[in-house]
């Protein structure tokens, strides 16, 4: 399994990273930035899908809670009703599951090309494509940045760990969908604090090159969020409207607030497939 992951993901990324490094004047930081951008752009549709799905689930929370309360003693009916309103807890997971190996692959490719230990250099030698000429001549990559930072060593100035903490905090804060449920809210807040601290702590002993990747990835994530915000807001409005509309036929006492917070009139909301899926009485069976 490890071999398959290597062949399909890590090896191509390792070689592409070296090629980019070659093109970009042997600047390893630039190579990491460019490859991270390419990968984040390639996975953009998945990111968007996952965020829309998360928003949808968040918007439906009051309705779902009410259904769960009403049918708590009838699991079959509960599952039927949940299906009717379009509840799919795994909806946001699949895109994330696809992205995860790609990010792990990139992480491994960076670690491998930095070759900070003898054993990692030996591993690099096994995975450089022989049909691409001159890649071996790029080894070892120039891992110093601005003559100060050795990307193969932990950052003793703590600049990288601090930037990792800051960017992870903002990235997590922005990309976590708002929750109306108190427990979920608490969990989200906890995660947005815990994650940056954990990553920052990890960076105290990890090669700084990995931190560069993480910072760039977070910054791109933040940028993506702002670029996608109009679309996400639209989706959010649609889902909120759909969720509010759905609440009536089930005769469940939905909290008044979400209803009062109804987004723009439906006529102004561009119909989308996701909104139609959530609508009661549709073909979603």
């Amino acid at each position: 399994m490890g071999n398959i992951f290597d062949i399909l993901v890590v090896n191509p990324m390792t070689n592409v990273l070296l090629l980019i490094y070659d093109v970009l004047f042997h600047n390893y930081v630039l190579a990491i930035i460019v490859l991270t951008i390419i990968i984040r752009l390639a996975t953009l549709p998945l990111t968007l899908k996952q965020q829309v799905s998360s928003l949808k689930m968040a918007a439906m929370q009051p309705q779902i809670k009410a259904i769960q309360e009403k049918y708590k003693n009838d699991p079959q009916k509960l599952s039927e009703e949940m299906r009717k309103v379009g509840f799919n807890p795994l909806g946001g997971c699949l895109p994330l599951l696809i992205q995860f190996p790609i990010l792990i692959g990139l992480y491994n490719a960076i670690l491998r090309t930095l070759a900070v230990t003898p054993i990692s250099l030996l591993e690099l030698g096994k995975h450089i494509y022989g049909f691409l000429p001159n890649l071996s001549s790029l080894v070892p990559v120039n891992s110093t940045f601005l003559g100060v930072l050795d990307l193969g060593q932990p950052d003793k100035l703590f600049i990288i760990p601090i930037l990792v903490i800051a960017t992870t905090y903002f990235s997590t804060k922005l990309t976590t969908p708002p929750s109306t449920d108190a427990t979920s809210k608490q969990t989200n807040q906890m995660m947005s604090m815990m994650m940056p601290v954990m990553f920052g702590f990890f960076m105290l002993s990890a090669p700084a090159g990995l931190g560069v990747y993480w910072i760039v990835s977070n910054l791109i994530g933040i940028g993506q969020y702002y670029l996608m915000k109009p679309r996400l807001d639209l989706a959010k409005a649609e889902h909120a409207a759909a969720a509010a509309g759905n609440a009536l036929p089930t005769s469940v006492s939905t909290p008044a607030k979400p209803k009062a917070k109804l987004p723009p009139p439906r006529s102004k909301v561009k119909p989308s497939s996701s909104a139609r899926v959530a609508k009661p009485g549709s073909d979603n069976k």
């Binding site: 608490q186 807040q189 906890m190 604090m193 815990m194 601290v197 954990m198 702590f201």
Partner: peptide
């Protein structure tokens, strides 16, 4: 939540 976050961070 802050207390929880603190405890969770410590465990992490």
């Amino acid at each position: 939540y802050s207390v929880r976050a603190l405890v969770a961070s410590a465990v992490g």
